[in-house]
């Protein structure tokens, strides 16, 4: 009886701080923003209930859809740039010599830097006058390709996708390496004895064996694309003319620059819904393909 009470007390008091912290700072905000999404609110003073107006306004606003489109560009760049590149590197890096470990460590390196540092370095790389990119192009005689990479609305978003790939490729590489090393060697050996070529083995053994990891990687690309806010904020602030606006920066600008907290809350809620939908959608899509 007394042991039972001590046990209960320990469980209760032990969990209390974590549950409280988690509930207040992670769970409540989701419902909070859903609630204030229904309000016309400037952050101070009276909040006025306006029903679905904020949500309707967001969904009928061109810039909202443009931001969503840019988010999808980041997703596409990650799925079709990061994943194949990481997979290729993983296939080439399966030996584990010191040279290969060095390459692996280098590929991972950008992951430990602050996004502010990455954003500023890449702004300088793209800078029209002193930038490395224009410098290299001039050096190899392609001077006519020189341009202000981040001020050209038609390419700015794609130029931002490059540092995103560069920055986040590391974890995918590690995941693929782990998956590749779990494929039993006998399988490959047996196929080789049966005369299967390298390419054949890649498509008939390796890729099917790590398909689950590829699926996880794609889901990560989708949820990870929403993290690009920091880079955008540092490099372009969403400009020029909203060409690099992401949902998160759109939300940020509406809330903290023009003080529309109700509207910003509605957009926050839409971000949660969209990211959950994208993740669920990609899961369903790939389950069907797998059958």
């Amino acid at each position: 009886m007394r042991i039972g009470t001590a046990r209960k007390l320990f469980i209760g008091f032990g969990l209390l701080p974590s549950v409280l912290l988690y509930a207040v700072f992670v769970v409540v905000p989701v419902f909070w923003s859903a609630y204030y999404g229904f309000m016309d609110w400037k952050g101070i003073g009276e909040a006025r209930f306006i029903g679905f107006d904020n949500y309707v306004e967001a969904l009928s606003h061109d810039i909202f859809w443009q931001s969503l489109g840019n988010n999808l560009i980041v997703v596409a760049a990650s799925v079709f740039g990061q994943v194949p590149l990481a997979l290729l590197l993983a296939l080439l890096l399966s030996q584990g010599t010191w040279f290969q470990r060095f390459v692996r460590a280098s590929v991972f390196m950008p992951m430990v830097l602050s996004s502010v540092v990455i954003g500023i370095i890449w702004s300088y790389i793209y800078q029209p006058q002193i930038g490395l990119l224009n410098g290299i192009l001039s050096f190899v005689g392609l001077e006519e390709w020189n341009r202000a990479w981040l001020s050209d609305p038609s390419i700015a978003m794609w130029m931002i996708a490059i540092p995103i790939i560069w920055n986040f490729i590391g974890p995918y590489l590690i995941m693929f390496l782990a998956a590749l090393s779990s494929i039993p060697q006998e399988l490959n050996d047996a196929a080789a004895i049966d005369g299967a070529t390298r390419t054949r083995r890649l498509f008939s053994i390796t890729l099917p064996m790590i398909w689950d990891t590829i699926k996880v990687a794609i889901v990560l690309c989708i949820s990870g694309s929403l993290k690009a806010f920091d880079l955008i904020y540092v490099m372009t602030k969403g400009g020029p003319a909203h060409a690099t606006e992401l949902l998160a920066s759109y939300m940020y600008n509406n809330t903290f620059n023009v003080y529309r907290y109700g509207y910003g809350s509605a957009v926050s809620t839409l971000i949660v819904i969209i990211s959950l939908l994208l993740i669920a959608g990609s899961q369903i899509l790939m389950r069907r393909n797998n059958q």
Binding site: V27, V30, S223, L226, K227, T255
Partner: peptide
């Protein structure tokens, strides 16, 4: 429930909590 709720929290995009956390 507690464990799944904790893991579910990992799916919440951090940036979507900026506005509500600011007001809170």
């Amino acid at each position: 429930i507690l464990y799944s709720l904790l893991l579910l929290g990992l799916l919440i995009p951090i940036h979507s909590t900026l506005v509500p956390l600011f007001s809170m």
